[in-house]
Design a protein around this nucleic acid. Structure first.
Ligand code: FES
Ligand code: FES
Lengths: 134, 134
DNA sequence: TTAATTCCTATTAATTAAATAGAAATTATT
DNA sequence: AATAATTTCTATTTAATTAATAGGAATTAA
């Protein structure tokens, strides 16, 4: 049970964007340099972030990305759901038919509760909270 | 962030063993049949479980495995640590030198706290608890 | 017109997890 | 002593997923 690079890098990138956004958009080139992440890799992440409505691109020279909402309105839960993509800790949480035995499976309940704990925690932390801590 | 098959199958197998253990040991063949898991796959899991002191093998005909302790003394946390193997949600929790920036990384604290939540929860659930629920 | 950027589509590389294979060792039972 | 049911060991293979890269097209400020 590891967090994916997508989610971890994505979170750091959004945090970086939130910190450096001012009058002008922030380019991936800048984020890449500051965070030590390949620009190409960031491109794939920001594609997802944009289609999820978390950032908005400005193309052309002096372009880059802007957050579409305030840092306090972006939870890590949202980033997790958008970037990590994998959903619950086991597939049968979302779709019980995957496992025979689902009806009587006591472990399924445990994995589900554990997932709820994680999601609840991530929901309680916003990008603004990370800014405050840094 | 998914749980591995090793951990999930292993948990079900240990639960099955706890439920069916009586005077005679339980063979992997039986567990495999009841749980719908390949016997060969169980072999690899029980090798790990035995070397971690959770089960003990009895070889030969009518052989199989026994738990070495009571179901209430086997926590899912222990099974997770033994079977899942992957440790914390990010490597830098255990070894900060993996990431440069560790010292000032606010996300690291978040991933660590999230891991602690998971582990704490798993620690609160024993095999006996699962038996009670089933 | 140029250069800086995002955008799009695809491919490749790397890593990890999952599952299987086969023969050796052990031992209860007959 | 022979047999059959088991675990044990070592290795391999397969599958799945993630991570990372590549190159050129589109956009647009300067
Ligand atoms: S029902 Fe899916 S793990 Fe038990
Ligand atoms: S220090 Fe490892 S993710 Fe930030």
């Amino acid at each position: 049970m590891k967090l994916t690079t997508r989610f971890r890098y994505g979170t750091r990138a959004v945090l970086d964007l939130a910190i450096h956004a001012a009058e002008r958009p922030v380019s991936l080139k800048d984020i890449a340099q500051r965070q030590g992440i390949s620009r190409k890799y960031l491109e794939t992440l920001f594609s997802t972030l944009q289609s999820s409505g978390i950032v908005r691109a400005v193309r052309g020279p002096r372009g880059g990305y802007r957050l579409t909402r305030k840092p306090e309105d972006i939870s890590l839960r949202r980033l997790y759901e958008v970037l990590e993509g994998s959903g619950p800790l086991v597939d049968c949480t979302a779709d019980p038919d995957i496992c025979l035995r689902s009806a009587s499976c006591v472990t399924q309940q445990v994995w589900e509760e554990m997932y709820n704990l994680c999601i609840g925690y991530l929901d309680s932390i916003s990008i603004q909270e990370l800014i405050n801590r840094s």
